[in-house]
Amino acid sequence: MNFKKIKNLALDGLVKQNPTFKLVLGTCPTLALTTAATSSFGMGIAVTAVLIFSNIIISLLRNIIPDKVRIPCFIVIIATFVTIVELAMNKFLPDLYDSLGVFLPLIVVNCLILGRAEAFASKNPVLDSALDGLFMGLGFTAALTLMGIVRELLSSASIFGIQLWDPTVFSIKFFGSSAGAFLTYGVFIALFTVCYNAIENKARRASAQKALAKEAE
C-alpha cells in the first residue's frame, strides 16, 4: 500500500468514478433527500459507514463465499450493517432518523453498495477495499451535499437550516418539489460531464505536448 495507490483510489471515488454523477448509482436517495443539505449529508454519511464495513467484511470473506451464492451473502452482510446503522441513528440522532424515513432501510438495496461489493471488495485485499469504501462513500456524500445545498438555497434561502435571507424576497419553491429534484440532478450530471471532459482534454493535450517536446529534443 503506497501513497500513489491511495491517491488513485481517492481520485476514482471522488471524481473519475463518482457514484452519483459518473456511475449514476443510488439514485433514489439522491433525488428524495437532497431537499435539504442536512438530510443529504446525513444520508451520505450513513451510506459511507455501511459501505466501509460491508466492504471490509466481504473482502475478508472473499475466499470463503462460494461464487454461486455470493449475491445473497453480500445482501445479508449489507442488511446487517444497515440494521446496525438504523438502530444507532434511531437512538442517537432521532431528528435525522425521522428526516431520512424509509430511505434509511432502503440503503440495503442501494446499488452503489452492492456494486462496490461485486466490483471491488470481492476481488481486492482488506485495506484496499476499506479505502475504496471510504472514498466512494465520500464521493457520494460530497455529490449529495452539493445538490442539497443548491436545492435548499434556491427553495428556502437557507443552508444546513441556517436562514441566509428572507425567503419571501427571493426563493424558488420549484426546487424543493419532486420535479425540481429531477431537473437539478439532470443539470448537475450535465455540468459534471462538461467540466470532467474539459479537464481530461486539457490533460491529454498537455501530455501530448510533453511527448512532442521530448521528441524534439
Binding site: 418539489s177 419532486s178 420535479a179 425540481g180 429534484a181 429531477f182 431537473l183 440532478y185 439532470g186 443539470v187 450530471i189 450535465a190 460531464t193
Partner: peptide
C-alpha cells in the same frame, strides 16, 4: 441528463 429532465416534466 435529458432523461432526468424529461422525468422532471412528467413529475
Amino acid at each position: 441528463p435529458i432523461t432526468l429532465i424529461t422525468a422532471c416534466f412528467m413529475a
